[in-house]
Design a protein around this nucleic acid. Structure first.
Lengths: 364, 364
DNA sequence: CTGAAAGCGCTTACAG
DNA sequence: CTGAAAGCGCTTACAG
């Protein structure tokens, strides 16, 4: 009982109407004339016969696939994979709402990505493309799409070199500024920065966000040293640096920490503090931190205001409007979307193994 | 300079050949005759003109879209979202290798999913479908696809009611059995189980895997109590139960833990042990645990052999072969794939705040 | 062994 | 206001 799908002419035949009329009504094309009643009957029969137009035939005749392709180069680091978690949920659901389907294509190498983009363009396999990944990868990809004259949106910070590209990303500078302000408001005088060691665009923006805040703000005496460190997403180098900082004298060690790095940095910070009998707090007078996190995130011992995982989904939701603008070749500054999330309190396990761990009872 | 894409007849014209011949050679159809040299020239010109066949035209004339759709109902719990992390990477890359593109469609409600499946089938929008999610959701979805006679593979444990479905999942029973054996090998006599509180198929399989191992294995005296608890993915209920167990006398409390739950259970276990000055170890004589984890996973204090995050990707790789079998309507037992991962050592922060935390120095 | 022709299932000017 | 016809770009029997 192979159910041969219903075609347009089947529903037209059943109604004794021409396929053209039925097509016109079903797509409610303007300037199509059919009585109210005929329209109703057409809808009814279409539903009754379970008619859905052939996607391929429509794509061929309309020259439009209603397909958006999400393209990226696979990154080996688990941290990046996790950053994509929830992205498909958000993108697919937004696109469905806009009448598009989402196709996903990822490749191990940049060459494969470029070849696929070329193929997509030449085979008219989609209406538009979303590029995701590091700037060093997405930049040549976007250039190719630009040359091929195919609409696209790219995730990333390309405003300096390519201000005319449709692009979406966080406002990393302001995020770090918010964190810095938060710590200043808590009364911290010496505020350290833990970042990533990377040329990635967002990393540089995080860094300059911190440095600009610091130089603009008067709390740190100009001659006070700059507590600044960048590492890969690993525990060891972070903990070493933190130990070094924490072993400075109480008058000279940093008490506030802006984190422009991943969960390993947070873990190192908490462990480092625990080693000296302290934990993070949101109250004045202790050690405090604020910054970005990867998902899932929770503190072990203390408390802190951070940017939580869910933000990447929110970011994804800006992609679709940008895509629509791109498809319509709308111009203007709204080609560049920069999203500033809000700080919120991190969940914590509030582990309290020994009394000596409690705030204020430094033991070393 | 809108680059109008090259069509088949363009390359045919340039070669003074008929489109039919060119098409035949490009698709290297059997029984097509063209001299070696002609073939070479065709390939050459196609490449030179950057020719890729129109996806829509091919789909229409061949009745095949080369599209696989990955369909699921969105689940609100972050834990589930994370379980999908890496899935797209694995699925897309496998499919690209098999000549298919991956399309993703997710919806908030079951009704929307069902409607989309109906539409996909009727619009011939894809060649096959991958269903992912909980059995209670995927079962009616799969039934619909079966009725619509469209090839599919479903993630899940449907072997009892639907042994003829193409399905892929972990061998949860054997996983729990492996964990149990591991603890027995370490000399544990009283082995507890921490699971999820859920009707999900995999949860039931984990549970029966543990219970069967236990009943088959002679180490536990038949009258020894069953240490067994199931909770949602939350910290509090787990820690309460663990405290209760750990406060039993050394002769009667459990020393081994099989974890059929998420990271919250692990955190609770580690915190509970830390509260009594202990941590997990892989050596005989202490407290040990083994089980499943969500990604990313690391222990805070101790060590343990666990199933790591990456397994979900490995699982995904079994989907494509199953899909191909499904497309060819191959029969046999290989419709059901059950994957048994290997235990491996979890990363640990090895936090060691106070000496009293060290193994063997119980303090309470 | 080759090329002209029909067909896939829609859409959309274009004549009635 | 309507319907017959051509066209989207391929593929594939089918006659030469």
């Amino acid at each position: 009982m192979k159910s041969s799908r219903t075609r347009l002419k089947d529903v037209a035949a059943k109604l004794n109407l021409s396929p053209a009329l039925v097509s016109g009504v079903l797509n409610n094309r303007p300037h199509i004339w059919a009585s109210e009643e005929t329209c109703a009957r057409i809808l009814e029969v279409a539903q009754e016969l379970n008619y859905y137009p052939s996607a391929a035939a429509q794509a061929l005749s309309r020259g439009k696939t209603d397909l958006i392709v999400f393209v990226y180069k696979r990154l080996p680091e688990a941290a990046y994979r996790l950053a994509y978690s929830g992205l498909m949920d958000a993108l697919s659901s937004e696109l469905q709402g806009a009448g598009y389907d989402l196709t996903v294509a990822n490749f191990a190498t940049q060459e494969e990505v470029m070849a696929h983009l070329q193929k997509l363009a030449s085979s008219r396999g989609c209406d538009a493309i979303v590029l995701w990944g590091r700037e060093e990868d997405t930049e040549p990809q976007a250039k190719l799409l630009e040359a091929l004259n195919i609409p696209f949106v790219v995730k990333g910070r390309h405003e300096v070199v390519h201000p005319h590209w449709y692009q979406v990303d966080f406002d990393h500078e302001s995020m770090m500024a918010q964190c810095y302000q938060r710590l200043v408001a808590l009364g911290h005088q010496r505020i350290a920065y833990l970042g990533f060691e990377s040329d990635d665009g967002f990393v540089q923006c995080l860094k300059s966000g911190f440095l600009n805040s610091r130089s603009r703000h008067p709390v740190e005496a100009e001659e006070s040293p700059l507590f600044f460190a960048e590492f890969g997403d690993e525990f060891e180098p972070n903990i070493c640096k933190i130990r070094e900082w924490l072993h400075l004298s109480p008058k000279s060690r940093p008490t506030g920490f802006v984190i422009g790095a991943g969960n390993k940095a947070w873990q190192a910070l908490e462990v480092g503090l625990a080693e000296v009998g302290r934990k993070l707090t949101n109250k004045p007078g202790g050690f405090s931190a604020s910054g970005i996190t990867s998902s899932p995130f929770n503190l072990m011992f203390g408390e802190a205001d951070v940017y939580q995982e869910i933000e990447i989904d929110k970011l994804a939701r800006f992609v679709i409007p940008a895509l629509v603008r791109s498809l319509n070749h709308e111009s203007g500054d709204e080609r560049i979307v920069r999203f500033l999330p809000k700080l919120s309190q991190a969940r914590t396990l509030a582990i309290n193994v020994k009394k000596s761990l409690q705030e204020g009872e430094a033991t070393i």
